[in-house]
Design a protein around this nucleic acid. Structure first.
Lengths: 198, 198
DNA sequence: CTTACCATGTAAACCGTTACATGATTCT
DNA sequence: AGAATCATGTAACGGTTTACATGGTAAG
C-alpha cells in the first residue's frame, strides 16, 4: 500500500487529485508513477477508511475542486511507515525478460540491435536526470550543504536514479562489447562449442 | 502481459505450473517474481485464449500433473514479443519513497539508520548475485566465450542485476557520507540556513 | 507419526493501466 | 470554432499478494 503512503506524504500540503497528479509527475516520478484514475480511486478509498478528509471548494476554472488533507489517523500511518524498516520490493524488468529468451531468435545481430537500442533510451533518461540534478544544484547555489533538510532528502532519491541509470548504461556497453566479441568468434569459425550448434 | 511472455519462453520445455514455479525461482527471479497462484491462473487463461495446450499426466508422487506446452499461436506471440523494441517499464522503489518523506521525522539520525540498514540488505543481495555468477563461470570453465549462446543470453541478465546492485551500494555509501557531513555541520551550529529551521 | 515435498487449485483484495465520459474556461 | 487546460470520475481488465483448501507420497 505504498501509493497510499506516498499520497499521505504529499498531502502534508492539502490538494485535489488533479493537483496531486501534477506533484507526482514533478517530484517522485523517477521512483514511482501513478495515473490520475488510480490517484482518484485511491483518495476515495483513503477517505472511506479514515486516513484523509476532504472539503469541496469552488474553482476559478472548471468544476469544483475536492481538496483532501490528512486526518489524524493518516498522520499516524505515515509516521509508522517512515519509522519502519526500509521496504525492498521486487523489481520487474521487461526488457531483461526479452533478452533472457532472445537466444531463441538464433541471431546475435538481433540481440546486438536490441541492446544498442536499449542503450539509447537509457542514455536519454540519464541525460534528463542529470539536467534535473543541475537545476536542483543551481537552486542550492551549487552546494548540497546549502539545501534544506527537506530538499536534501528529495535530492538523494534523485541521486539514486542517476547511479542506477549510469550503471545500466555501463552494463549496456559491457554487453554490447561481449556480443560483438562473440559474433566475431562465430564468424571466424570458432563458434561450434558446447552445444552452441544452433 | 509480460508474465504470459515469460511463461511462453520457459515453456519451450513443457512443464506443469509447479515445475514453472521452480524454474522461475531458479532462473529469472532476479528480474521477475511470480507466486504459484498467479502462475496457475495465468496458465489457465493462456490455455483459454489458445496460447498454450495441456495434457494431464500421472505423477510418481502426489496428484496428476497438468503439463502445458506452447501452441502455434503462442510461438508466434513469443516471436513477436522478442522482435519488438526493448520494453522499459516504470520501476517503483518503496524505500526511496520512504526516504523522500523522511525529513518529516525531523531526525537525521533516523535517516542515517535507515540508509545504513538498507545498505546491509543490498550488500547481502549483491553477495548472492556474485555467488551465482561464480557458479555460472565455473560451469563455463571461467570464460564467457565458452558458454552456449543460450547461456550467454541468460548470463548477461544476471550481470545487469550485479551492475544495478553494485550501483545501489555505491549510492548508499555516498548518501551515508552526505548525511554524516550534514549532521556534523548542524551539531557545530552551522545548521540554520535556507529554511533549515526544523 | 510428523514433516517435507509434490501438485493442484480458489477467493478476496488491492495495485495498476487503458479507455471512456463529462463539462467548464481560456487562449488562439 | 477548436485546442488546451482544469477537474471530476467510472469500467474493464489484467497484475500481484495473501490466505485458504485439499490430498498424496516419502523420509526421518
Amino acid at each position: 500500500m505504498s501509493l497510499e503512503h506516498i499520497l499521505l506524504g504529499l498531502l502534508q500540503r492539502p490538494g485535489s487529485g488533479y493537483d496531486l497528479k501534477a506533484t507526482f509527475d514533478g517530484t517522485v516520478r523517477h521512483f514511482w508513477a501513478a495515473e490520475l484514475s488510480q490517484i482518484y480511486t485511491t483518495l476515495q478509498r483513503m477517505e472511506r477508511t479514515g486516513l484523509l478528509k476532504s472539503r469541496v471548494e469552488p474553482s476559478a476554472k472548471g468544476p469544483a475542486r475536492k481538496v483532501y488533507s490528512v486526518a489524524p489517523t493518516g498522520r499516524r500511518a505515515l509516521r509508522a511507515w517512515l519509522t519502519d524498516a526500509p521496504k525492498v520490493n521486487d523489481q520487474r524488468y521487461t526488457y531483461l525478460a526479452q533478452l533472457f529468451f532472445m537466444d531463441s531468435l538464433s541471431s546475435l545481430d538481433q540481440t546486438l540491435a536490441f541492446t544498442t537500442s536499449l542503450r539509447e533510451t537509457r542514455a536519454d533518461a540519464l541525460k534528463t536526470f542529470r539536467a534535473i540534478e543541475r537545476q536542483w544544484l543551481d537552486e542550492a547555489d551549487g552546494s548540497v550543504d546549502d539545501m534544506s533538510d527537506e530538499n536534501f532528502h528529495q535530492y538523494v532519491t534523485l541521486r539514486a536514479g542517476i547511479h542506477t541509470m549510469a550503471a545500466r548504461l555501463r552494463w549496456c556497453d559491457e554487453t554490447i562489447r561481449m556480443i560483438k566479441q562473440r559474433a566475431d568468434r562465430q564468424r571466424n569459425g570458432r563458434g561450434q562449442r558446447k552445444g552452441n550448434t544452433r
